[in-house]
């Protein structure tokens, strides 16, 4: 009995020290090797000719046009898909109707279709060889190899992000709080803005950030639809590829570093919001 009492009690959920260090070590190595190292390489390559080289690369008109194009596309595509995502999630979770399962599958379609295929679909639909595309070009409204095509491709690719983040949260919350607001005399819009939106805001934020990251980073579909015309339809990802293929590695990696920084900035923004509203976040957690 006495030797049992002498051994220190080990919590059942704790691992032996060796297993613990191995697991932690593996995680650290993995993260370093597959996340930090590639990111650092991008920045290191960009700065290989010093800050001057990187700044020169950013002064290239093609690079600036690509940055402008990507930011414009994201600024338009993200709000549209946020609105569509909320509407779709609302319809799916708050109403019962026929074809609901089909709609949910449809929302996931852009995830399962290869971006290149999505781009080709748009080219077939709106390209010069189709009736619709021919008419649009004749009326001076080209879609393929022009801004609208890039926007459509980006909208298609990034459509699921917001809806997918919100749907599970809305489903879990059910309809009771909205119904309560209605019985208290609130209109549909008031209910949406004062009850629904506050309840989904964190999921919405995640969705918007993911959507934004993808909208800026999308390559495949945009590459097919845009035709990659320098200074006109090239976006940051397609411009990076063109620089790289021309052995302009400093320009390619500088632009890549800017794209990576935009992504890091969105992540930082998210963390900042979470940190500032930590108390509210804790308070709104489910009882």
């Amino acid at each position: 009995m006495s030797d049992i009492a002498l051994t220190r009690p080990v919590p059942v959920t704790s691992e032996p020290p060796l297993a613990r260090y191995l697991l932690i070590g593996f995680a650290v190595v993995f993260v370093t090797l597959f996340l930090f190292a590639p990111l650092l390489t991008v920045f290191a390559e960009a700065l290989r000719q010093g800050w001057a080289g990187a700044l020169d690369a950013l002064r290239l008109p093609d690079a600036q046009a690509a940055i402008r194009m990507t930011l414009t596309i994201a600024a338009i595509a993200v709000p549209i898909n946020a609105a569509f995502g909320i509407a779709a999630a609302w319809a799916i979770t708050k109403f019962d109707f026929r074809g609901k399962a089909f709609l949910i599958t449809l929302i996931d379609l852009p995830f399962s279709v290869s971006p290149v295929v999505a781009g080709l679909m748009l080219v077939l639909l709106f390209g010069a060889n189709s009736t619709l595309g021919g008419w649009l070009i004749a009326n001076d409204m080209p879609i393929v190899f022009a801004f609208p095509g890039i926007l459509l491709a980006t909208l298609f690719i990034t459509f699921p992000f917001v809806a997918r983040e919100i749907i599970p949260v809305m489903m879990e919350q059910g309809r009771a709080e909205e119904e309560a607001a209605l019985t208290l005399g609130a209109s549909g819009w008031r209910t949406f803005f004062t009850v629904t939106l506050p309840n989904i805001r964190w999921a919405l934020l995640y969705g918007v950030l993911l959507c934004n990251a993808r909208a800026m980073g999308e390559f495949g579909a945009v590459a097919v639809v845009s035709g990659k015309i320098r200074g006109e339809t090239a976006t940051m990802p397609t411009m990076i590829e063109m620089f790289y293929n021309e052995y302009l590695s400093v320009a390619a990696f500088t632009l890549a570093a800017v794209l990576a920084m935009l992504a890091l900035l969105t992540l930082l923004l998210k963390s900042l919001l979470e940190w500032r509203h930590a108390d509210l976040l804790a308070a709104t957690r489910r009882h």
Binding site: A176, E177, E179, A180, T183, G185, P198, N199, H287
Partner: peptide, 15 residues
């Protein structure tokens, strides 16, 4: 209708 309604799980606004 202006009917005061108390829901089963109360449906208080969490936020």
């Amino acid at each position: 209708r202006r009917a005061g309604f108390v829901f089963q799980q109360y449906a208080l606004f969490k936020h």
